[in-house]
Amino acid sequence: MIGYREATDIRVKSAGDAPDRTRLSIKVDRVRHEYISQNGERVVALDDVSIDVPNGQFVAIVGPSGCGKTSILNMLAGLIVPTRGAVSIDGEIVTGTSRAVGYMFARDGMLPWRTAQANVAFGLEVRGASKAERLAQADALLERVGLKGFERAFRSQLSHGMRQRVALARTMAIDPKVFLLDEPFGALDAQTRIVLQEEFVRLWENTGKTVLLVTHDISEAVAMADRVIVLSPRPGRIKSDIAIDLPRPRDIESVRFDEKFARLARRIWRDIGVRGGGDIA
């Protein structure tokens, strides 16, 4: 109950307000992550990674597959614990799953026995919101992601793009302070991907939420983010940290033909080092 009320308060406050960019939202502090692989070897996924993200910034992390990009998100979501170092959100060190975080994956995770509406309402339901409240909220969010009229549809009746929209609405319903996106558009076809990127940016701009996007699509990173961080191959270290000074509000589709866009994208391609034999999955 209390958790839900807090969430609504934050939404009211943050709507339209400019984020206080001087405050730190995410701090990844000298993090190292090791794990034991299936054949018993110790693998260093991340080594000495530090990232400071101010409130309201949209940061994309790119890098070759296996460089530990997703590990950073999992740490922030409280799903794994760093071997060394610490991660914090709003100044508090993350020790377990937190309701302040909205995590979205490449796979939609829709409960197949629930309608789109009930799927979107899931987060509010586990927070104890009343049925009327959560269903009204779910309907409003479904409309915002362009799924009006599909409230009663089941997963099996929706296309991949629509399922991912439901996942987006579900994540927005809990009104998180921080969005963690793990290749949320990666499983979509090229056109749907751009439409959804555009929609996410449209919904996100002016909310003042912090976003951390992990992707291997460099165009996606440059088109959407304020800042792109390039990780090196395993063990992942920060190779470069590039400010994307393209204007906002941004048109995801046409910004791709911008000269500055091309320059930034080329620079990132070079940093990732495709020609140097790096593996881009």
């Binding site: 309701r99 975080v101 995770g109 579900r170 809990i174």
Partner: peptide, 13 residues
């Protein structure tokens, strides 16, 4: 496992 993971990150106990 995607479903239980989803529930976990959505804050379900």
């Amino acid at each position: 496992p995607d479903l239980t993971m989803m529930a976990k990150v959505m804050g379900a106990t």
